[in-house]
């Protein structure tokens, strides 16, 4: 009974925070500096780990599919397989999970510690809406940066797949590139980017929400940080199914 209540309370808070972000986004003053700063934190700082992940995912995909496709003599399609899996699915989901772990957790921790040290109260006292000031820039920074990271991941992953398929497995380099571009449509790429934008929205709102409603001192901050990552990861994986269904 308690857990069900808590579950619906979380959902209620999620939509409340989301609504708050939408309502406060157009209001002045617009804090461009803060937005830029958060974009750098989300995007630039996570770039190395995102690139590494994308590259090795492309490489593993190539390794797995080349071996399988060789059995049918269809190894020229490796490129399209690697590309489609990355572009439509893996880059967005893996990117979302990584950013949930890096930035979502940081949002939970930062806002959480601001809550327990009364900094959020101090903001309110100084005629500043904390959603406007803290949450809005973090959410939009993530919504913008995650798709950008996914674009880079797509490219790096395809390149990693190429390295393995051509140099390691000795398939035809022209065929790899040909099938990649022949079978990957623009709509495949955009569907991945739209997903990424939604994942960014979810993970940032969840991270901020966990931080915002922190109670119970330093321990509470730790709890919020963990929950920010766990809940965001689950939401990303579940929403991925439904978003894929909608975006086919």
């Amino acid at each position: 009974m308690k857990t069900i209540e808590a579950f619906f309370e979380e959902i209620g808070r999620f939509f409340e925070m989301l609504w708050g972000v939408l309502v406060w986004t157009p209001r002045r003053p617009w804090d461009w500096r803060q937005l830029l700063y958060q974009m750098v934190r989300v995007g630039v700082n996570s770039l190395p780990v995102i690139l590494l992940t994308a590259m090795f995912t492309g490489m593993v995909m190539a390794l797995q599919t080349t071996a399988t496709l060789m059995r049918f003599g269809a190894e020229r399609y490796v490129g399209s397989l690697v590309s489609l899996s990355l572009v439509r699915e893996l880059a967005a989901v893996l990117g979302g999970l990584i950013i949930a772990g890096r930035s979502g957790s940081a949002m939970g921790a930062e806002l959480g510690s601001m809550r327990v040290t009364e900094q959020i109260d101090a903001l309110e006292v100084m005629a500043t809406n904390p959603i406007h000031y803290l949450v809005v820039p973090r959410v939009w920074a993530t919504v913008v940066m995650l798709p950008l990271l996914v674009v880079v991941s797509d490219a790096i992953g395809i390149w990693g797949g190429y390295l393995v398929a051509v140099l390691l497995m000795g398939t035809n380099p022209v065929a790899y590139l040909e099938t990649t571009f022949q079978y990957t449509e623009v709509s495949d790429v955009t569907s991945g980017l739209i997903k990424a934008a939604f994942f960014g929205l979810f993970l940032a709102v969840i991270g901020c929400q966990q931080g915002f409603y922190t109670s119970g001192g330093a321990q509470g901050v730790g709890r919020s940080t963990t929950r920010a990552v766990v809940i965001a990861s689950i939401v990303i994986l579940i929403s991925d199914f439904f978003l894929t269904k909608i975006l086919f």
Partner: peptide, 19 residues
Amino acid sequence: LTRFRRKFGMAFQEGALFD
């Protein structure tokens, strides 16, 4: 509420400085 709070200044027990 935001407008109302302009007439206040508050010092918190532990400072509550923005870190």
